[in-house]
């Protein structure tokens, strides 16, 4: 589960974001919406430990990640936070299964190849295990990156515009998979999007303004 208190972040003097407190329990989904420039991605990066807030607290499970040192934060992020982005990035020279398993190695030191295979199977891309990611379609790539985000069974699953570049069919499929898998692994799912299709799909919403 995750909750935040009094988060504030500023890019210099002009843009100052004060974020509402958010809470999502294990297995729950929370959709964050808002127009451009309202700080959606900034909030997501704060939650993911990619940015540090000027003030406030982010507590994931029992850890206040704003207080962690850089090195500990890297490790914490690897173990407890899964991230799915609008566009999928991979280590271009590694194949699909290696890319997914790599995340388990970076977080825990073990290559969980079997787990990766099982997850990719659940996401319906187990026919492409030994392909280079760039050989896959965008929808398939997105599913591989979901598998990668989930391989360490994170406490928090973050998704930044996960469906924006997908067609309707793929968008709903990805949204369903995210929700189902987050529930299965007990992760709190936080989605950031301006995708109208998702706004109708997830009842639990916060709008930034």
């Amino acid at each position: 589960m995750i909750n935040t208190k009094n988060l504030r972040f500023s890019y210099g003097k002009d843009t100052d974001f004060y974020f509402p407190d958010i809470t999502a329990r294990s297995g729950e989904s929370l959709l964050i919406t808002g127009g451009s420039g309202k700080g959606k991605t900034t909030l997501l990066h704060l939650l993911g430990g990619l940015l540090r807030p000027q003030s406030g607290e982010i507590i994931i499970q029992d850890t206040n990640i704003t207080a962690l040192s850089e090195k500990k934060l890297d490790l914490f992020r690897g173990r407890n936070i899964g991230l799915v982005l609008q566009q999928s990035y991979f280590v271009a020279s590694l194949n699909v299964i290696e890319n997914v398993a790599l995340s388990s190695w970076l977080a825990t030191g073990n290559l969980k190849t079997e787990k990766a295979k099982q997850l990719l199977g659940q996401l319906g891309v187990d026919g492409h295990l030994h392909k280079i990611p760039s050989q896959l379609s965008v929808g398939q790539q997105q599913r591989v990156s979901i598998a990668r985000a989930l391989i360490n069974e994170p406490k928090l699953l973050l998704a930044d515009e996960p469906t924006s570049s997908l067609d309707d069919e793929n968008a709903f499929m990805v949204a369903d998979m995210l929700e189902a898998l987050a529930r299965q692994y007990g992760s709190a799912l936080v989605l950031v999007t301006h995708d109208q299709r998702l706004k109708d799909r997830f009842p639990n919403q916060i709008t930034l303004s």
């Binding site: 890297d74 280590v91 790599l102 360490n152």
Partner: peptide, 19 residues
């Protein structure tokens, strides 16, 4: 230039700067 996303991704997945 093309690999910086790859590097960012590795960091997100738990890789340290040193790695």
């Amino acid at each position: 230039k093309e690999r910086k996303y790859e590097f960012a991704l590795l960091r997100v997945s738990g890789a340290s700067r040193f790695q």
